[in-house]
């Protein structure tokens, strides 16, 4: 498997290095020998059907819910097995599939919950968040439970950014969103990449990730079936029918 080789070729040290990751829920093994790395400013997309293990991979990196084995290095430091809040403080940010915004809190309060001390001399401010997601500013005082799906997704990402992560894990960000919102989120992802944040994005919507994906992994039944660039994926249409068929 050559996916652990730094495909960006620039020689940057990896931000996230996952090797031989295995995860299980009770007796059921849900991930088997997953290996990949993410460089700063790089977006790696996990593709696959429902139940392929994409979400589990993100949760495992974040130390949520699963028992796991294998190495997870964040900035060269083993974080596998740490408590979730330590992994968050080590620089990982997680945006879950169902967003899990705090529905009873206002938009501004949601952001405040996510606030953590500055990292590398920079801390996200509300002003920067409003620049990234302008629609949030006008609704800063609204209860988050009353937001639309798109607004909730923006808030979920923004809330995580307040922790000044170096690595962002996005689980199915496109789910149920209108194309206009998708374009805005894709644009935001590009901005974050430019600022050196590394991303792992789990997705089913190939169209959405095209604008920002640097590399693609296809997962099926908890194992990596393909690792390569978008161009390599497009070169072999059978991959799409076999693993992603719409």
């Amino acid at each position: 498997m050559n996916s652990s080789i730094d495909l960006t070729g620039i020689g940057k040290p990896a931000l996230l290095e996952v090797s031989d990751l295995e995860a299980r829920y009770g007796h059921a093994r849900v991930l088997t020998s997953i290996t990949f790395s993410v460089a700063p400013g790089e977006a790696v997309v996990l593709l696959g059907r429902n139940g392929a293990g994409k979400s589990t991979a993100l949760k495992a990196i974040m130390g949520l819910e699963v028992e796991l084995q294998g190495r997870i290095l964040l900035d060269g430091r083993q974080v596998g097995g740490l408590a979730t809040h330590h992994i968050a403080r080590a620089g990982a940010g997680y945006v879950p599939e169902d967003r899990r915004i705090f529905a009873g809190l206002s938009v501004a309060e949601n952001l405040a919950v996510g606030r953590q001390p500055a990292r590398d001399g920079h801390a996200w401010s509300e002003a920067e968040i409003w620049t990234l997601f302008p629609p949030l500013q006008a609704i800063a005082d609204r209860r988050a439970g009353h937001l639309s799906g798109g607004e909730q997704q923006m808030l979920a990402i923004a809330r995580t950014l307040m922790g000044n992560p170096r690595l962002l894990l996005l689980d199915e960000p496109s789910e149920g969103l209108a194309p206009v919102i998708l374009a805005r989120i894709a644009e935001a992802v590009a901005t974050l990449k430019a600022r050196g944040i590394g991303l792992v994005v789990s997705e089913q919507n190939l169209g959405f990730v095209r604008t920002f994906a640097d590399r693609v992994l296809i997962l099926e039944t908890g194992t990596v079936r393909f690792a390569g660039t978008l161009a390599e994926l497009d070169a072999d249409p059978s991959l799409v029918t076999r693993f992603l068929s719409v």
Binding site: H85, F102, G163
Partner: peptide, 24 residues
């Protein structure tokens, strides 16, 4: 208070609060 905000967040979803770096 900031403490109260964290309590309210953890009351809604303590796992998510942990994922945002809050020490439960």
């Amino acid at each position: 208070t900031a403490w109260g905000l964290r309590v309210r967040a953890a009351t809604e979803d303590r796992e998510m609060a942990a994922a945002l770096g809050i020490d439960q």
